[in-house]
Design a protein around this nucleic acid. Structure first.
Length: 578
DNA sequence: GCCGTTTTCGGCCCGACTGTTTTCAGTCG
């Protein structure tokens, strides 16, 4: 049975959680989590590295011990250590760690004293008033546990970026309008442009923190105040979104923004650099210890750029701050010149009323002009998936003529004759080559048979790319954020096959797709595989989704030259012709 | 458990807030 990077990471994360509950050394626990992260963001299959006898200790955070364990997991499909841990400590306790306010110590006490081993039992114990009997826990903690278990059972607790945007903007307006607030900016994963956010971090500068906090907790969207101090408050919005506000003085703005933007791992690495230089970084600034034992003096803090430069680092865009090599790159002057929406010249996947879109060809063309695109590919569906009411070969022939007629009338924009053609179970396409050859752009997409085994699924898509008419693989994994998991694919192999055949992959900008994800974008870049960022717009409004795709691309280290549609149509045409 | 042009042992980021305490442990980000 093949072992994937995600399997190895899962084993390490479980080991870490169980060790943590058992009270193991926190740095040992962290070592397993670091190892899990390293493996899961690797742009190669770790099992392949094992097969080829490569030295895994070259990987950051992987030493002799973890290297041996990776090998064991790859070769046997499991880890003896994890099995032993699960003998000693009920594995279901791991999910109790996710309950707010319950860390390893309390989980251990609740388990040992009350025999609780699962979320259900935890809920029961809380409802029966047994939690409050325990040493160090009381009535309030018990109440919070009850509420959080209910919330945890209720739903998926991450919020999609586009939905978060709708809440963030009004909140920022509200804060910026307060007399005491100088600046208010989103930080955290929102600023790092992650596809989903767990909670929302907002940073404000003010000399009157307590007043700002007290206005904030009265904001109209706030349903519950979780904590409230002089400089920080945590609230829960009616939508269920957790929002943290931190207030600092202006002189600490850069340090605070850096700190609250994270990621946690990026911060830890940066602080280690500071320690090496004999300095200390906290959310208020960078501090130098005085020779005598008097108070340390602040030597930076107003701006992020100044703090990075103190350590001979270029300013690092928030999207890169995941501790995936960006600090080394910043030191060596090798940071990517990340793609922006302004670099994009056109949209390579859009739909009209000719299949399942809601706007006409004319309306889409007009909207594309308004956005300043040089070209737009009209890529309605082929007929295989009944619900999309797609085009068969004859209808497509007529449609091609219609697009061409409109294109000839328009001066400022080029309409590309395209199709989003279905990939059938065997990898062949849903339309004959004869008609595909007449198109400017053929993007191939899986809309059925999502659950083929990994080798078969991978072969299926490689066969699709064998067809010289195939230009781009649309939404390659088919995942839906908060919905479908996506195809099982050997992505490394698929990308290599794409490069060999002169095919390309899409980064679909629909906010519930964002497929490819950031890690796969970077994998593509490292293999010289260019990526098309397309909105897959089914309406005029959705053509504005381009920014979400660009955010994801930036998280994947993509530069303008790594993206297909930063080129004029003439250049792009030459590139995709096979 | 990892890591090292100061170290192969002894470090490992750092502060706010809460709740249950009587001075602080646990949790969180």
């Amino acid at each position: 049975m093949p072992v994937y990077n995600s399997d190895v990471a899962e084993v390490f994360n479980r080991v870490a959680a169980l060790l943590e509950i058992e009270g193991a050394n926190e740095y040992r626990v962290r070592a397993y989590r670091d190892g899990a992260r390293t493996v899961s963001t690797l742009s190669r299959d770790v099992s392949e590295m094992v097969d080829e006898g490569e030295d895994l200790t070259e990987l950051s955070g992987i030493g002799e011990n973890l290297a041996d364990k990776i090998e064991e997991i790859v070769k046997t499909g499991g880890l003896a250590q994890l099995r032993e841990l699960e003998q000693r400590t009920p594995p279901e306790l791991v999910e109790i760690l996710d309950i707010a306010g319950l860390g390893p110590k309390r989980v251990q006490i609740i388990h040992q004293e009350l025999g609780v081993t699962s979320l259900d039992e935890l809920q029961e114990a809380a409802e029966e008033g047994r939690i409050r009997e325990l040493h160090g826990l009381g009535e309030k903690t018990e109440e919070k546990i009850r509420e959080d278990v209910a919330r945890w059972n209720a739903a998926d607790n991450r919020t999609r970026r586009d939905l978060a945007e709708d809440m963030v903007e009004p909140l920022l307006d509200f804060l910026r309008d307060l007399d005491d607030v100088v600046e208010a900016e989103p930080a955290g994963s929102y600023r790092r442009k992650k596809e989903t956010i767990g909670d929302l971090d907002i940073l404000a500068t003010s000399e009157a923190g307590a007043r700002v906090i007290s206005e904030f907790v009265d904001y109209e969207d706030v349903e519950e105040v979780v904590s409230e101090g002089e400089t920080r408050a945590t609230v829960i919005f009616r939508s269920g979104l957790h929002v943290d506000l931190r207030v600092v003085a202006e002189g600490s703005y850069g340090a605070a923004l850096l700190y609250f933007t994270g990621s946690k791992d990026h911060n830890i690495s940066l602080r280690s650099l500071a320690l090496d230089a004999g300095l200390k970084i906290n959310e208020y600034g960078v501090w130098e210890k005085a020779a005598d034992s008097s108070e340390p003096t602040q030597i930076a803090g107003e701006a992020e750029r100044e703090i990075y430069s103190l350590f001979d680092l270029e300013w690092i865009p928030p999207e890169l701050r995941e501790d995936r090599g960006e600090l080394d790159a910043a030191r060596d002057g090798d940071l990517p010149d990340l793609v922006t929406v302004d670099d994009i010249c056109g949209d390579l996947q859009t739909h009209t009323t000719s299949s399942d879109g809601r706007a006409s060809l004319e309306e889409m063309a007009e909207a594309a002009q308004a956005l300043g695109w040089e070209y737009i590919a009209i890529t309605d569906h082929s007929g295989y998936v009944g619900v999309t009411q797609g085009l068969d070969a004859d209808a497509l022939e007529e449609w091609i003529d219609e697009i061409q007629r409109l294109d000839e009338k328009l001066n400022d924009i080029t309409l590309l004759r395209g199709i989003e053609v279905d990939v059938l179970e065997d990898g062949s396409l849903d339309l004959p080559d004869g008609v595909l050859e007449k198109l400017d752009l053929v993007i191939c997409a899986v809309h059925s048979h999502f659950d083929l085994p990994r080798p078969q699924q991978t072969e299926r898509l490689i066969r699709t790319m064998d067809n010289p008419n195939c230009h781009i693989l649309a939404h390659p994994t088919g995942r839906r954020i908060g919905g479908r998991a996506g195809l099982e694919l050997d992505m490394e192999r698929l990308m290599e096959a794409a490069v060999e055949r002169g095919c390309f992959v899409e980064l679909n900008a629909q906010p519930d797709r964002l497929d490819l994800n950031d890690v796969y974008c970077r994998m593509a870049k490292e293999r010289g595989l260019k990526v098309a960022i397309s909105t897959d717009a089914h309406s005029v409004e959705e053509m504005r989704f381009m920014r979400f795709g660009v955010y994801q691309a930036r998280r994947g280290w993509l530069e303008p030259q790594d993206v297909l549609n930063t080129r004029s149509w003439d250049d792009l045409h030459q590139l995709i012709e096979r």
